[in-house]
Structure formats: C-alpha cells, structure tokens
Amino acid sequence: MKNSPMEALARNSMLILWTIFALFPLFWMLVISFKSDAQMFNTTFVFDPTLENYQEVLIKTDYFKYFLDNIIVSGGAVIVSILVGVPAAYSLARFNFRGKEDLAFTILSFKFAPEILVVLPLFLIYQKIGLYDTYIGLIWVYQLITLPLLVWVLRGYFEDISVEVEQAAQLDGYKWYQIFFRILLPLVKPGLVASALLAFIFAWNSFTFPLLLSGFKIMPVTVASLRYIASDTVHYGQMAVAAVVTATPEVILAILIQKHLVRGLSFGAVKG
C-alpha cells in the first residue's frame, strides 16, 4: 500500500489526537497528585508542587496494606484461573462430550453478565456461608473476571496444535504429563502469558465485587481510594496519589508485555 504524504499526515494527526485523548486523564491525575488542597481549584498547570499528598496517603494511612490485599486477591485469582483454566481449555479443545459448547458458552457468559446484577445475590450467599470479607471469597468471585478470558484464549491455542503432535510424542515414549510440559506448554505459552497478565489487570481494576463483598478486614486499593472522600470535603490530591500508585504496576506490566500482548492474543500457537 502506497501512502501519499497527505494521507500520512492525516493518519498521524489522528493518531496524535487519539494519544492525547487517551493519555490526558493519566497526566491530569499525575498533576493533581502534586497539588496542595489550597491550589486544587484555582490553578491548572502552574502551581507549587508538593509531596504532601504522598506523605499523607503512603505514610499516614494503611495504604500498603490495601495494596498488598489487592496483590493477594488479584494474584490469587489469576493463579487459580491458570490451574483451573488450562485443563478446562485443553478439554474443551480436544474432547467431544455432551454439552461441550453449552459449557464453553456458560464460561464465556460470566464475562458479559453485569457485575452489579449478580453481586446482590452473591452478597446474601456470602453472608450466609461465611465467605464475606475473606480472601478466598474474593478470589472465588474474581474467577468471573479472569477465568473466561484464560479459557477462551487458551482453547484457541490448544485447537491450533494438531492432535498428531501429541500422538507423535506418545509414540516417542513420553508420558502424558511429560507431553504436557515439554510439548504443549511451550506452544501455548504466549497465549497463557498474555491472557494471564490481562486477567491480572482486570482483576486489579475490579471495583464492584470488592466494594460489596468485602468489609474492613480486606480492602483492595480500588475500594480504599474512596476513603479519601470525607464527609465535608473531597481530598482530590490524596485520591490522585492513591490512583497513581495503584496504576503504576499496571502501566509497568503493560509496557513490559506490550509486544507479547498483541502477539499472544492475535496469533495462534502454530505458525506457518
């Protein structure tokens, strides 16, 4: 495809516009986090930067406890999803059993049920069976977010590997678990890494579930950020700090895996 200079110009300016549109909220958040409450509403880009908000949030509150909670819950959810999702994806790809497509669709449908719709009955159930405000309870409910992604991406990867490759490995004298770790796992790795990290980010961002299904013992940062809204005033600076710190791991992860993310989600396991 040949581009005329005009076309290139138009294309690039659209991209630049989009970049500004996408990145400005992040930038604005960063700016606010350095503003004192006094300058919050009467300055835009010119102000006296201060670290007061950071001091206030990171040192004087339990922020790191919330941060750790988020890591435990999101990380735990992704680990459980991998343990459950890899075999599930494999069986959906390889075996024919009754209700296979229904099952696969049910798993997918978790993804498009609005959280706010399912969270109320879950709240009542969790209260009754004692899962409310526990790590296990949150990790469990996070499966609604992380599992479908993993299962559907990996199913495609497993389907791309021909059965004969596994059969050849059997005839070469390998046991099923050796076939899995030596042959299958390396082939689905790009998909596994990409979908697991994406699932981690979704879990990390989750707000509705932890807001309603956990109380004071466990509080991920997404929920904890709300505490900077006091009854009389909103501490925008402190909220911004909480948000900046929360977003940092995601941004770093996304930048690190950017290449794999695009490849992993768009390519199959076996090229050529």
Binding site: S162, V165, A168, L171, I183, P186, L187, V270, G272
Partner: peptide, 13 residues
C-alpha cells in the same frame, strides 16, 4: 512403534 504422520506432526518449538 515408530510412525511418520501425514501432516508431519513435528514439534513446532
């Protein structure tokens, strides 16, 4: 037994 598969079934990685 040792087999050659029609679609080769080579290990891609």
């Amino acid at each position: 037994v040792s087999m050659v598969f029609e679609n080769y079934a080579l290990y891609p990685h």
